[in-house]
């Protein structure tokens, strides 16, 4: 029962955060909505026996990424609203299609046999299992992720550096 209540609370919080993001007057407000959304998801992860991923969610998403967004927004001083949308067709088509997509997904999921086996919770083992799998089965993807980060770092340096006037 407690689980259902928690799910409802965090689920609602996530949805509210998400709506906050898209309704936010300016980017700074949206970033706060994003924070709520990320934190609620982190909590849901912990509920789902994934404490490690949940903590990473708090640290990386709610911590690093949101802060980075805010940092760039402050840096560029672009916390301002939007003008009139000149293409309203896009707006209505987008909303309709997104809703259609969500409805379709839910329809499929309800019709399908979704896994529901409630299994004994063993969160103590979580990190160990993840580590073992990550460094054995998923070693190559792990390395590739490392290479990706290196490339990302170089790319950022190249992009952000001011080009010398010719």
């Amino acid at each position: 029962m407690l689980e259902i209540i928690l799910f409802a609370c965090f689920g609602l919080a996530a949805i509210v955060g998400a709506i906050w993001v898209i309704l936010g007057k300016n980017a700074t407000w949206s970033a706060l909505g994003l924070l709520i959304n990320f934190c609620s998801l982190g909590a849901l992860y912990i509920m789902l026996n994934a404490p490690f991923v949940g903590l990473i969610q708090f640290i990386v998403y709610a911590g690093a990424i949101v802060v980075m967004f805010l940092f760039v927004i402050m840096l560029l001083m672009v916390a301002r609203g939007e003008g009139q949308d000149k293409k309203p067709v896009q707006r209505y088509a987008g909303i309709a299609l997104a809703v259609l997509l969500a409805a379709g997904l839910v329809y499929v999921a309800v019709g399908a046999a979704m896994p529901h086996g409630a299994l004994p919770a063993t969160p103590q083992d979580n990190v160990r299992v993840l580590g073992l799998t990550l460094f054995s089965e998923y070693l190559l993807p792990l390395w590739m992720a490392g290479v990706l980060f290196l490339i990302g770092m170089i790319a950022v340096v190249m992009l952000a550096k001011r080009k010398r006037e010719a």
Binding site: I15, V21, I22, A31, E82, I95, A98, L101, A102, L105
Partner: peptide, 18 residues
């Protein structure tokens, strides 16, 4: 639901950060 809301945001908002 969250995915759809995100999608709506991408399509509707014009602020690149959002």
């Amino acid at each position: 639901i969250l995915f759809a809301i995100g999608g709506i945001g991408v399509l509707v908002r014009r602020n690149v950060f959002v």
